[in-house]
Amino acid sequence: MSTLFFGILFSFLGILFAMNFRKTTGNLKEIPQFGQAIHQGFSVFYRGFGLFAIVSIIVFWVIGSKYNFFEYLEQNIDFFTVSKMKVFYYLTFGLQFGFYIWSSLHFAPFGFNYNVGNEKGNLAYHIFSGFKGEGSVSEGMWVLENSFTSHHIDLYLKLAIIIPIALFLYAGYKMGKSKTFSWKSVILFSLIYSLFMSITAGFTNLEMVLKYNGTDVINKPTSLFFGFHPFGMFIRSFIFSFIVSYAGSFINKIVKKA
Rank of each mutant, 00 (worst) to 15 (best):
E119F: 04
E119S: 01
E119C: 03
E119H: 06
K120T: 08
K120N: 14
K120W: 14
K120V: 14
K120G: 08
K120M: 15
N122R: 12
L123A: 03
A124Q: 11
Y125V: 01
Y125W: 00
Y125R: 01
I127L: 06
I127K: 01
S129V: 07
E134I: 04
E134A: 03
S136Y: 11
S136T: 09
S136L: 10
V137D: 06
E139K: 03
G140N: 02
G140I: 01
M141Y: 01
W142G: 11
W142F: 13
W142E: 12
L144R: 05
L144Y: 08
E145I: 03
E145M: 02
E145V: 01
N146I: 10
N146F: 14
F148G: 00
F148S: 02
T149P: 07
T149L: 09
S150I: 15
S150T: 14
S150H: 11
S150N: 12
H151I: 13
H151Y: 15
H152G: 06
H152K: 10
H152S: 12
I153K: 07
D154T: 02
D154N: 02
D154I: 05
D154L: 01
L155E: 13
Y156A: 04
L157D: 06
L157F: 07
L157Y: 08
L157A: 06
K158D: 07
L159M: 09
A160D: 02
A160T: 00
I161T: 11
I161S: 07
I162H: 02
I163S: 04
P164V: 01
I165C: 00
A166T: 00
A166E: 05
L167H: 02
L167M: 04
L169K: 00
Y170N: 04
G172R: 00
Y173K: 03
K174M: 10
M175V: 02
M175P: 01
K177P: 09
S178P: 07
K179P: 15
F181L: 10
F181P: 07
S182A: 06
S182W: 08
S182N: 08
W183V: 15
W183N: 11
K184G: 07
K184D: 09
K184Q: 14
S185H: 13
S185G: 10
S185I: 09
S185L: 11
S185R: 11
V186M: 05
V186H: 03
V186N: 04
I187R: 00
I187E: 01
I187P: 00
L188S: 03
F189P: 06
F189C: 05
S190K: 05
L191T: 02
I192A: 04
I192S: 04
I192K: 05
S194R: 00
L195D: 11
L195A: 13
L195Y: 15
F196Q: 10
M197P: 13
M197G: 11
S198Q: 03
I199S: 05
I199T: 06
A201M: 12
A201P: 10
G202T: 05
F203I: 09
N205T: 13
N205S: 12
N205L: 13
E207Q: 12
E207Y: 11
E207T: 13
E207V: 09
M208F: 13
M208R: 10
M208Y: 11
L210M: 14
L210H: 10
L210C: 06
K211N: 14
Y212M: 15
Y212G: 12
Y212Q: 14
N213Y: 15
G214S: 10
G214M: 13
G214N: 08
T215F: 11
I218E: 14
I218V: 15
N219Y: 06
N219Q: 08
K220N: 14
K220M: 15
T222F: 14
T222Q: 09
